[in-house]
């Protein structure tokens, strides 16, 4: 197991290096004059030139590349243009907020969708099964900004049960904060319930049909025992993999929900950075999101390896 972990971590570092390189290429290949972009079309050329100087866009490409790699290692990307503060100070609070929302969303989604998936798999092709599948498909096919606004309007405005903005006042406390986050988290549930339930259902069906389940049943083990000991272990592997990648993805992928609930998370911070041409913040953000993605997928892989020792031998999944 240790060897497996080491190998996966080493591979992740290689991926991180490639990611940094790609970010460098994207920022440099796009036909653009960053100084002009930031200063606007009417700024005098001197201002544009001095901005470009500050950005270091006139330095040799190799120097710029080396600087970026050094920044990645030290995780110090200098000052954000827009905020005039170190990138780290701007990004960390936003990261914290995104983490809270994503974690709450998944804490709510995962148990019910796994339960629904297993439930549907055990009653394959019944009415209940079809309901879960169809409901899931339908709910995850409505864009989350639409379900978000609808929830906000009905539960927040019409019924007045929950706050319509997601950011709690600083004195709200943990429970208070959860109340504020509940509406956007529910919108996340609407999107992910169907997806995770369907993956779980498919995994469970495959496991139920497999030889080892049949063997276990023939050995005379009780239905419950078979389910927990044998089926779950195998059935949930795709579910874990999907949750891992989706959590990583959602840290920056909730732009619509953040906008609707005025929640200043990482997604809207980075979208604004892209439109403001705040390159230090943007570069740091893309790399941070990449690191988070790698960490969550790595964690998922480790959990899978623990659940199913054979997958360790199969090497890495990608």
């Amino acid at each position: 197991m240790t060897r497996y972990i080491l190998r996966r971590v080493a591979l992740s570092l290689v991926t991180l290096y490639l990611l940094a390189t790609m970010v460098f290429i994207i920022v440099n290949v796009l036909p653009d004059d960053p100084g002009r972009r930031i200063a606007g079309p009417f700024a005098p050329q001197e201002i544009v030139d001095s901005l470009n100087e500050r950005l270091g866009v006139n330095d040799p490409l190799l120097d710029q590349y080396a600087r970026l790699l050094r920044n990645v290692v030290t995780f110090d990307f200098g000052e954000s243009f827009k905020f005039g503060q170190p990138v780290k100070e701007v990004m960390l609070p936003a990261l914290g907020r995104s983490a809270k929302l994503v974690v709450l969303g998944f804490v709510l989604t995962v148990p019910i969708s796994i339960a629904a998936g297993i439930f549907a798999a055990r009653r394959r092709n019944s009415f209940a099964d079809r309901s879960v599948v169809t409901l899931g498909l339908a709910s995850s096919s409505i864009p989350e900004f639409v379900s978000g606004v609808t929830l906000q309007f009905v539960i927040g405005v019409q019924l007045g049960w929950l706050p319509v903005l997601a950011l709690a006042p600083s004195d709200a406390g943990l429970i208070g904060e959860l109340r504020y986050l509940l509406l956007p988290a529910l919108a996340l549930v609407a999107v992910y319930f169907g997806y995770i339930a369907r993956i779980t259902r498919a995994g469970t069906i495959m496991a139920l049909d497999s030889d080892y389940t049949r063997t276990a049943v023939m050995k005379g083990l009780s239905g419950r025992r078979v389910l927990t000991r044998h089926v779950m272990r195998n059935a949930l592997q795709p579910t874990v993999a999907v949750i891992g990648t989706q959590i990583g993805y959602l840290f920056s992928g909730l732009i619509g929900l953040e906008l609707i609930f005025n929640y200043p998370g990482l997604g809207s911070l980075l979208v604004n950075a892209a439109s403001d041409k705040d390159f230090p913040l943007l570069t740091a953000g893309v790399i941070l999101v990449g690191v988070i993605y790698m960490l969550t997928t790595l964690t998922a892989d480790l959990i899978i390896a623990w659940m199913n020792p054979r997958s360790r031998l199969a090497g890495d999944r990608a």
Binding site: Q152, G160, P163, V164, L165, L259, I260, F261, N262
Partner: peptide, 18 residues
């Protein structure tokens, strides 16, 4: 004073009493 990205959300904030 709360800052908003989306003017529509400001209206919702008034409607929701926030």
């Amino acid at each position: 004073m709360t800052f908003f990205d989306d003017p529509g959300t400001m209206i919702t904030a008034i409607q929701g009493g926030q």
